[in-house]
């Protein structure tokens, strides 16, 4: 249903506002427990404090740069491996089920291994993000390339395209929408693992901050940081959507 004259964004914001208002009232009435859920007003009120006292911006930059490094690695390596599996069929037949298994595995549990290899450093966090995000990018790249319509392939063949032209002019652009689904999934997995490992090893940016605040039982601060992470994710994915439109116009 569409409400005439009201933009969807306004409806979305109003829904969130209504939900938060309801939670606030329920907390104030004692229906919900304030020791478990902080007041939404307190959560939003704590943003100033987080920026001033907890270096939220610096921590964002730190997590952001780790996320950027992991994203670039996930995209470049994942797409390249997907293309390799597409080109070498026997390799795809041999490894695709294993890659799919890795995509479904809780890779975060392997963090002690990376701690041993890279130490308690940003490298461990980036490596964890990379490993967690890699499988979906490989699988979706392979799926996208395998799913290119036969009629498009035939157009290329009818013009006597070289294998390289056939790939770069037809197959790869045709597969971009599916590849981007993989990149988006990969970045979600990478981001979750980045922040999760920051939390677990108490090192780095936003994940460590959530850990610190939780240990201090600063519930409003914890929730505010989580809200902040969600907002950053929304911005990242909006940017990714724009990038996809730029790479693959006409959708």
């Amino acid at each position: 249903m569409r409400l005439p004259g009201i933009p969807p964004l306004a409806v979305g914001l109003a829904t969130i506002g209504l939900a938060l208002g309801t939670v606030e009232v329920l907390l104030l009435l004692g229906v919900l427990n304030q020791f478990v859920i902080p007041l939404p007003s307190a959560v939003f009120g704590s943003f100033g404090r987080l920026f001033a006292e907890e270096q939220l911006l610096e921590r964002l930059l730190m997590t952001g740069s780790e996320a950027l490094a992991a994203s670039v690695l996930v995209s470049v390596v994942g797409i390249s491996l997907g293309v390799l599996l597409y080109k070498v069929r026997i390799l795809a037949l041999a490894t695709e089920p294993w890659v799919a298994a890795v995509a479904a595995a809780p890779v975060v549990l392997a963090y002690p291994l990376f701690l041993v290899i890279f130490g308690r450093s940003a490298a461990t966090i980036i490596a964890m993000g990379f490993v967690a995000g890699l499988a979906p990018v490989i699988l979706k790249t392979l799926e996208g390339l395998k799913g290119v319509r036969k009629s498009l392939i035939n157009v290329g063949l009818s013009y006597n395209l070289t294998p390289s032209q056939q790939f770069w002019k037809i197959e790869f652009p045709a597969a971009i929408p599916t590849i981007f689904v993989g990149v988006r999934l990969g970045l979600v997995f990478a981001l979750i693992n980045l922040i999760g490992v920051e939390f677990l090893i108490n090192f780095g940016g936003l994940g460590q901050l959530i850990n610190d605040l939780a240990e201090r039982y600063d519930l409003a601060g914890v929730f505010a940081t989580i809200v902040f992470v969600i907002l950053v994710s929304v911005v990242i994915f909006a940017g990714l959507e724009r990038m996809e439109r730029w790479f693959r116009p006409g959708r």
């Binding site: 157009v155 013009y159 006597n160 652009p173 971009i176 693959r248 006409g250 959708r251």
Partner: peptide, 21 residues
């Protein structure tokens, strides 16, 4: 023995490139 430069083909299925104007 393969696609000939004198032959142009129009296919039954949708074959325009969606990403090109």
């Amino acid at each position: 023995s393969g696609p000939h430069p004198s032959i142009g083909m129009v296919f039954q299925e949708e074959s325009t490139f969606p990403w090109r104007t």
